[in-house]
Nucleic acid binder design. Sequence first.
DNA 1: TTAGTTTCTGACCGATCGGTCAGTTAGCGT
DNA 2: ACGCTAACTGACCGATCGGTCAGAAACTAA
Lengths: 184, 184
Amino acid sequence: MSTSQEDLRRIALAEFASAGYGATSLQRIAELAGLSKSSVLYHYGSKEQLLEAAIGPAIDRMDEILAPLERGGLSESRTEFLEEFVDFLLQYRLEVNMFINQGPSLEDVPVIDRANALILRLAEFLTANTASVEEKMRFGIALGGAAYMLCTVHARGLDAPPIDETRAALVTIMSELLTPVRIP
Amino acid sequence: MSTSQEDLRRIALAEFASAGYGATSLQRIAELAGLSKSSVLYHYGSKEQLLEAAIGPAIDRMDEILAPLERGGLSESRTEFLEEFVDFLLQYRLEVNMFINQGPSLEDVPVIDRANALILRLAEFLTANTASVEEKMRFGIALGGAAYMLCTVHARGLDAPPIDETRAALVTIMSELLTPVRIP
DNA sequence: TTAGTTTCTGACCGATCGGTCAGTTAGCGT
DNA sequence: ACGCTAACTGACCGATCGGTCAGAAACTAA
């Protein structure tokens, strides 16, 4: 269990997240790790397998956060969820951004399919679990992130609701957000 | 004023926004336009100049939306701003996403500097103009988008507040969002 | 020391990248 | 018909991409 494996994973994750998968070369990862490109491939076999090793744990983590909430709705632990959500975005430095900005060559990579499916689940979940105006307000910040992701999903051309419907939904939500709270 | 120039701009914008700048080849743009790679370069000179032509108008548009609000604060036209904001995100298909996911080769391109500066301005403006809890709620969705962008800016390693401060600010905002409104 | 295994590397491969250039095609005024 | 110009193309360039492979270097066990 040399440190090289773990260092490589960490370095690759940071680079993929910041510059994107297609824009990050194995040569650059190797230089940052103080190794040769051949050594990187020796440890992980291919660039795709390195990607799998780099972002797989992040997807697992988001699954852990999201799965129990989808089963039980949001009746409990709203605070914990949102804190965990933001922590996830910051801790993993939003490498979801990388999942989207993928090159044409990444269309059949399983881990990318998992990531895209997760983003859709997350956006739909956040949108579906804001019934009342008060809920919408409380989840405004999460909704904003979800809206951002939805837009990105649309830009990527993934399977998602028509853009007109998304726009209408966002405008409706925003209209309610802009209406001052009326306490009966 | 042949249609080729405008078609190329539109196609390039869509491809850059969906697949990212580094992952989009001139060959692919040429194929989508029904031209040869040489013709694309004949019209725009280089890939960078094509990028400039593709996203320049989008940056100008966001400047038009943001500039008057920065001068006059948010005392008026909150509704219009948020509607325009969402419209912008959807209309231009969030190609800001592309500004971030740039390769190392794009660090000195002026239009990219403009785009990055715009994202920072937008995030700071949205964060600064939510003083009260009610304001925070109303702008929750916009804040969410801003938070997402801030995270991405951090991931890109651009000049931004330390990530710990950003995290603390987000948690504070969320704590207030999660506190039910008390009407005195 | 010696043998065996793991780790690492440089040289090389085919493919593709952005970009250049000579030359062909097409459109238009005369 | 002609010539001029703008639009377009295929061939080619050096560089870099992900990936392969034979072999050197380093470490361990005896």
